[in-house]
């Protein structure tokens, strides 16, 4: 297991707690499932230590709209790589609500999906491989394609915008 973010492997600094049971007593950084966050919002916000939320498939990212500036991290769980709901959640969080914290893909995260995840706003990936393999995979995946048709919030220039620039340049030149 390794977490890759910003072109390097990072440490796991978060404890993911279950839907019920005791919260860690100290100032640990914790990630709670959305359902628990909704139940125990006041307690969780009042706690010392970092706070994050885990979204599972079927959850509504809209439920976090008012609390995003309190969250340092949101993890989105892919129960199977074929379950693509998390891509929509990521775009809603980034593009609609302007979430600026870490957006981490967890669960069935495989090399061939990482570029799509990145395009939708993820900036961290938890892979099942060891550190070196994980880093190599993420690097390779992010380099695989260089042409993008869809505008998303990832800041990549789309083919349409590059074509437009080119037309403008030709116009100025002539």
């Amino acid at each position: 297991m390794a977490i890759v973010k910003n072109d390097s492997v990072i440490d796991q600094e978060w404890i993911t707690v279950d839907i019920e049971g005791d919260l860690p007593a100290g100032e640990e950084n914790i990630i709670v499932p959305l359902a628990r966050f909704k139940e125990e919002r006041e307690t969780l916000i009042g706690r010392n230590g970092g706070l994050g939320v885990q979204l599972n498939s079927g959850d509504a990212p809209e439920d976090l709209a008012d609390d995003l500036d309190r969250l340092s991290i949101i993890t989105v769980n892919f129960p199977a790589y074929t379950d693509g709901r998390g891509y929509s959640y990521a775009r809603v969080l980034r593009e609609r609500f302007g979430f600026k914290g870490e957006l981490r893909a967890i669960g069935d995260v495989l090399r061939d999906q990482i570029l799509y995840m990145h395009r939708c706003g993820f900036d961290a990936y938890e892979l099942k491989n060891d550190d070196d393999v994980s880093l190599t995979k993420v690097r390779a995946a992010l380099k695989e394609m260089t042409v993008y048709y869809q505008p998303t919030g990832d800041g990549r220039a789309t083919a349409a915008s590059l074509r437009e620039q080119r037309r403008a340049a030709i116009k100025t030149a002539s």
Binding site: G84, Y87, Q113, M117, Y148, Q150, T152
Partner: peptide, 13 residues
């Protein structure tokens, strides 16, 4: 065609 080709959000519908 262009909008749907490798749409990052809609490849695992």
């Amino acid at each position: 065609r262009q909008w749907s080709t490798f749409h990052p959000e809609f490849t695992y519908l």
